[in-house]
């Protein structure tokens, strides 16, 4: 079914841009080479607006708006790069680093990590909040993969790819607030999961070293994400 979509014109950082009415601010910005940091967003999965890195200012709206879940509107004036936003984005990263035990130097994903890259990109040279050093588990019960809670940032990409693309819904989140964590099935060891198809999509979309392949040593775990846009495009074409 061909939907009728209107073209909207708007300003991003003072530049006139155009996009379809069913596109988000983030999509339109990236189409115009305006970069914005994101962690929970990944092309091909639904957006949840959780990491707050892609927040933008929109003229006439009091609150900051997540650009990944907000559709473009005619005449919108969007600012993606104010000093205030830069400050908040750095603080988001600092809070993440302080939350769990992200020891980059000994991480399988060292050098291939979205969190580590963003820290450099946004200029986080140290974390001003006390590190919390929680005691967290590592689940190596799966034959091929490892879950290291120490490095999880709760972006829920694994939850979404498993549900929306693989259709297994092995992953979900349990617990509240600072105690929240991703789990497989009903908080059973991953290796004993009856729903997991061992497809490995969760591992590939994970932005950090929280999910990795067994046998990879420090800095060896680079992720292959080409499958995701490929699969979504193929499915859209079929529809």
């Amino acid at each position: 079914m061909a939907k009728q979509v209107q073209v909207k014109t708007l300003k991003i950082n003072g530049v006139d841009v155009g996009g379809r009415g069913d596109q988000t601010i983030l999509q339109v910005a990236r189409e115009h080479d305006i970069e914005m940091p994101t962690l929970c967003h990944i092309e091909g999965l639904s957006d949840v607006g959780a990491c707050r890195l892609c927040l933008v200012e929109v003229k006439g709206i009091n609150k900051l708006i997540p650009s990944c879940t907000t559709l473009v509107e005619e005449g919108m004036e969007v600012t993606t790069n104010s000093e205030r936003l830069a400050k908040y984005r750095k603080m988001v990263l600092e809070l993440l680093f302080a939350e769990r035990n992200h020891i980059c130097s000994v991480c399988v994903s060292n050098g291939h990590c979205d969190l580590q890259d963003l820290a450099r990109l946004l200029g986080v040279t140290h974390v001003r909040y006390p590190y919390r050093y929680p005691r967290l588990s590592v689940d190596a019960s799966h034959q091929r993969f490892v879950l290291d809670q120490n490095r999880c940032i709760l972006c829920t990409r694994c939850v979404r790819v498993c549900d929306e693309i693989e259709g297994a819904h092995t992953w979900d989140v349990m617990g509240r607030g600072i105690e929240a964590k991703v789990i497989t099935d009903l908080n059973q060891p991953w290796g004993s999961s009856e729903t997991c198809t061992s497809c490995g999509k969760c591992v590939q979309v994970c932005p950090t070293g929280a999910l990795s392949e067994k046998g990879k040593s420090v800095a060896e775990m680079s992720k292959r994400r080409q499958f995701l846009p490929y699969l979504t495009t193929m499915r859209e074409e079929r529809e």
């Binding site: 680093f97 035990n101 020891i103 980059c104 130097s105 000994v106 040279t125 140290h126 974390v127 590190y131 050093y133 929680p134 005691r135 967290l136």
Partner: peptide, 19 residues
Amino acid sequence: VALGDCAVTGNIPSMRNQF
């Protein structure tokens, strides 16, 4: 000047904290 990850983040020595 805090030189290197141990001085800046606690790094590997801090891995004992959670235990």
